[in-house]
């Protein structure tokens, strides 16, 4: 449990910092790498990746929204069919969290594929 938390925080931090210089899809590459190189099973690979990305893609927007009184989140909610601003922040984290989770899972499954190959 503790190990998972540490991995989530570290991975989130790496993604957060990387995205200042790299395009948004760095999150896909980083979570895939995490799954491939560090995660010890596919369940952890998925959940750690999901939560790390969720943290960055929901908490950072949340921090921004608290500074502008959710004005921008509200505007984007209006553009996407009238969703409330608070929901936009959550959906933002959820959608990309799932993408990160998927990438982490993919990486981890590649690893198991490789170890099976080596074992035979």
């Amino acid at each position: 449990m503790k190990r998972s938390i540490i991995q989530i925080v570290v991975l989130a931090l790496v993604i957060f910092l990387a995205q200042f210089v790299l395009p948004w899809y760095a999150l896909v590459i980083l979570t895939f790498m995490y799954g491939l190189l560090l995660a010890d099973n596919w369940r952890r690979a998925f959940f750690v990746s999901f939560l790390a990305v969720f943290l960055v893609w929901a908490l950072y927007p949340l921090a921004i929204s608290m500074q502008d009184g959710f004005r921008l989140a509200g505007v984007i909610g209006d553009v996407f069919g009238g969703l409330p601003g608070g929901l936009i922040v959550g959906v933002n984290g959820l959608v990309f969290g799932l993408l990160g989770g998927l990438a982490g899972l993919s990486g981890s499954l590649f690893k198991s594929l490789r170890s099976v190959d080596m074992g035979s």
Binding site: Q19, D68, R71, F96
Partner: peptide, 19 residues
Amino acid sequence: PLGKVLNPHGGFWQNAERG
């Protein structure tokens, strides 16, 4: 392109008027 648009670091979130 939702990835670019919703990216907290470069997408629309950066258009918030924070002071």
